[in-house]
């Protein structure tokens, strides 16, 4: 065991993992975190605590992660390269680990231009792959990035993101390979709607032997409405939503129900796909629907590990 986290144990035991997401509040509203946590407790193996997602200021990911621990959840601590240099990153990693955080997801981060402080100075001292490698070095070699010894190395289960849907498509599997080479233990993908392309990417990964080396968790996001489907398809770079899916949601009697039904179908399909070791459900501001999705997709009860 690298970290002994629940997520790691679930995957090591060969179970199909299930992770969720919890976005910290735009303030110090502890109750808001507790409320969201309550929907996810006992349902997911770990919960991603996002790091100022879309570059909007929110409670620190590690801090919301600690509250999640108190609420009985296992956090997956997200860290982006946008806001911190290597000094702050390593320092935060030590602090998070010291307080019981065991999973970490290393990301580049949405560009600051999208957020609520669009003209702040983006840091990007290192990139996400270099961050993965730095965390691995801290854990396995007990060294800081500069080579200095660490007194009490953080034993983290290291995650990374992958987007099979962004261009250039043929490079995406190589980027995955780089993340694996850098030290990623698990991967969570961008939300999948284009199953054909995802299948193709998984095949490439499998052909390169990557599915043996890393635990791939497929990302899903239930579509809440026809408007959301159209908006995401048009405006979110790196997301593909095929027309037939948009049509299906738009033409449904009750779009939200259809969105959940589609999400459950996707999970069922992903469970059968070679190399997929779990799903990562990003129910954006829809945490209260997670138990229902988990139940209908037969993801609960979770295994004892």
């Amino acid at each position: 065991m690298k970290s002994g986290s629940r997520l790691e144990r679930v995957l090591a035991a060969g179970h199909f993992a299930f992770t969720g997401e919890l976005g910290p509040p735009q303030g110090a509203n502890v109750e808001a975190i507790k409320k969201k946590a309550n929907y996810l407790k006992g349902i997911t193996d770990a919960v991603n605590i996002t790091d100022n997602q879309t570059a909007v200021v929110r409670m620190a990911s590690w801090a919301a992660g600690l509250i999640a621990i108190q609420e009985g959840l296992e956090p997956n601590y997200q860290m982006v390269c946008r806001d911190r240099n290597r000094i702050a990153m390593q320092s935060d990693i030590l602090g998070a680990y010291a307080h019981g955080i065991r999973n970490m997801l290393c990301l580049s981060g949405d560009h600051q231009q999208f957020g609520n402080h669009p003209l702040t100075k983006g840091v990007f001292d290192i990139d996400s792959i270099q961050l993965i490698n730095m965390v691995k070095g801290m854990r396995d070699n007990k060294k800081f990035l500069n080579g200095d010894d660490i007194d009490g190395a953080p034993q983290l289960f290291i995650g990374a993101a992958a987007n099979p849907f962004a261009e250039p498509f043929e490079f995406r599997v190589h980027r995955l390979a780089k993340k694996v080479a850098a030290g990623a233990d698990f991967i969570q993908t961008q939300c999948i709607y284009d199953m054909k392309r995802f299948r193709e990417w998984m095949k490439q990964a499998d052909d390169m032997g990557l599915t043996e080396k890393v635990n791939i968790l497929a990302g899903v996001t239930p579509l809440k409405s026809g408007g959301m489907a159209r908006y995401m398809a048009k405006n979110v770079s790196g997301i593909i939503i095929p027309d037939e899916i948009i049509d299906r949601i738009v033409n449904a009697k009750k779009a939200s129900e259809e969105g959940i039904k589609l999400c459950v179908e996707q999970i069922e399909e992903l469970k059968e796909m070679k190399g997929v070791r779990g799903v990562h459900l990003m129910a954006i501001e829809w945490e209260h629907r997670v138990p229902e999705i988990a139940e209908r997709a037969k993801l609960i009860p979770r295994p004892q590990v």
Partner: peptide
């Protein structure tokens, strides 16, 4: 825009 050194982030559009 993110001064990355190891390839594109996930935000590259279909048009590149």
């Amino acid at each position: 825009a993110k001064s990355l050194f190891n390839g594109p982030c996930g935000g590259t559009s279909r048009e590149g």
